[in-house]
Amino acid sequence: MLLREGKALRVAFGETLAELGNTDRRVVVVDGDLGSSTGADIFEAAHPDRFLQMGIAEQNMLGVAAGLATIGFVPFVSTFACFAVARALDQIRVLIAQPKLNVKIAGGYAGLLAGKTGKTHLMFDDVSIMRALANMTVIAPADEIETRRAIEVITATDGPVYLRITREPSPKLFDDDYVFHLGVASRLRDGRDVTLISTGVQTTRVYESADLLAKEGIDALVLHVPTIKPIDEAAIVEAARETGFVITVEEHTILGGLGGAVAEILGDQYPVPVKRLGIRDMFGESGPDDALLEKHRLSPARIAEDVRLLLARRVR
């Protein structure tokens, strides 16, 4: 089944914050000179007085957000994932995660598809790094609807959050009445043969790959895990129990991200074979989105191929 067209997460990000800003004066956006790329410009247009430009200085930007949080604001820090997570990690760790301050860090242009920017900008170890921080909630929404709901929920929930936002338009996975619960996974498809676990916009590709697999007689259970921390352990264990074979798929390094989290949980609680699909131990490069997805075997067709192969090997 082909998914409906949807907006880019960054657009949903800006629109949702602009709407929230109408009723919630605590919401402010802290920008690192990338508002015209991240979707934060939509908020600036609606609420120029609560759009705080910090210039090209991410470390101070994260510190300013921490200060704003101490007096009751709900700052959404908006920049590219690489500049928040990598450049300002010390500020996130000491000023936000350790004191549990109510700062929401929106990492834009996350993952593989970042407009041909290449190695510096392609950030696909952000989830590993952020989930290693105590007190940090890590969310990777799949589509515009889930982005909206997640932002509404985290605005109403105290505590530090890393929100993974992507650049390119993503198909719609959820209906308008979708309800997002923090820390709760969402089963998109039942299945007997294999469990596919994914997160973020990659889930839309995994969902489509399950349709391809079904045509070949492979019945895949699909579990979407939007909150990577705290993660829905029960749903993951149950999904592993039902098929006995788990494959994780992420637009992210296979080191320490969703696949790592799933392997940790199942190793502890319900050991079954776990295969991790995603980006191998390497940095990014420039290139067209489609070519990058193909190279890293993250398109629906390549996922289906790899699942078929892994299942065949397992049977043998």
Partner: peptide, 14 residues
């Protein structure tokens, strides 16, 4: 110091 800048900025805003 950077957090202090944020506190002062927030105080102005509030």
């Amino acid at each position: 110091f950077s957090a202090g800048v944020g506190v002062a900025l927030g105080a102005k805003l509030a």
